[in-house]
């Protein structure tokens, strides 16, 4: 399970003639945290949806360790070790935290329907194993105490953690985080930053979309700036911060 390198080359997407992503090329280096930033509507989430196979691309390549994944169905992309969280948090509200996270372990359970119906001990063993693994992940993201609580009742920050734990349960080589810090307070953001770095140190490539520049600067090894569906700048946090074009695109000019 080595960290994967993701490479996008001139990827484009239109919706009924409207250009959402014009042409994006970027590389998320293996074992690093790469941030994708840009104003609203600059094509960040569309890009993420193309990487995960939710939207087919109109042009360009998406390569995961050299393998083109642009035409694969989402579950096949997931099977190659790509996991994600959603900007609008998509959890099963009436299910417990643990059950939500266990869904991420789905692809690691291989018992056939027949095995399940016969109640073979191997089925139970694999279920116990995955449960233990998921509980460890709950511990890692810091919500072990909420194991048996229905997620619908959790705070916003905790639900984001459940999503991250669920994504980790798929044992990804590449983790995509869509605005993980949105709606979090200062302390929660600090804890999240530590968590992202810990995930990176586990040998997982991270690609994140985030508006909070402080957060991005704290966790990212590399930043790519999008505007109008194109990447307009890339570099380390320090480099990107000094670029006038970025300041203009991201913060807007003073007289705008």
């Amino acid at each position: 399970m080595a960290a994967a390198e993701l490479e996008l080359w001139q990827v484009a997407k239109r919706f009924q003639g409207v250009v959402a992503v014009d042409s994006v090329s970027l590389t998320a280096a293996a074992g690093k945290v790469t941030a994708l930033i840009g104003p609203n509507g600059s094509g960040k989430t569309t890009t993420m949806n193309m990487i995960t196979g939710l939207y087919p691309t109109d042009a360009g390549h998406i390569r995961l360790d050299g393998v083109d994944i642009a035409r694969l169905a989402p579950h096949k992309v997931a099977a190659l070790g790509v996991a994600r969280t959603f900007q609008n948090i998509r959890l099963l509200a009436s299910e417990t935290t643990l059950d939500n996270v266990l869904l991420g372990a789905h692809r690691h359970q291989s018992a056939s329907l027949l095995d399940v119906l016969l109640g073979l001990p191997a089925v139970k063993r694999s279920e116990t194993r995955e449960k233990a693994r998921c509980e460890a992940l709950l511990d890692l993201v810091g919500i072990a105490a909420l194991r048996d609580v229905a997620v619908g009742g959790l705070s916003y920050g905790d639900r984001r953690r459940v999503e991250i734990a669920r994504a980790l349960a798929t044992q990804p080589r590449l983790l995509l985080l869509d605005e993980p810090a949105a709606g979090m307070n200062f302390a929660e953001k600090r804890a999240l930053a530590d968590l992202v770095l810990a995930i990176r140190d586990m040998g997982i490539t991270v690609l994140l979309i985030e508006h909070d520049i402080e957060f991005v600067a704290r966790v990212s090894d590399h930043i790519v700036v999008l505007n109008f569906g194109r990447e307009i700048a890339a570099g380390t946090p320090e480099e990107v911060r000094r670029m006038p074009s970025v300041i203009e695109a991201y913060l807007g000019t003073e007289d705008a």
Binding site: T52, L54, A73, P74, H75, A78, A79, A83, R84, F86, R90, L103, G104, H106, R107, R166, A167, T170
Partner: peptide, 8 residues
């Protein structure tokens, strides 16, 4: 959609 993204 979410299930699919989780590898189902």
């Amino acid at each position: 959609v979410m299930s699919e993204a989780m590898g189902v």
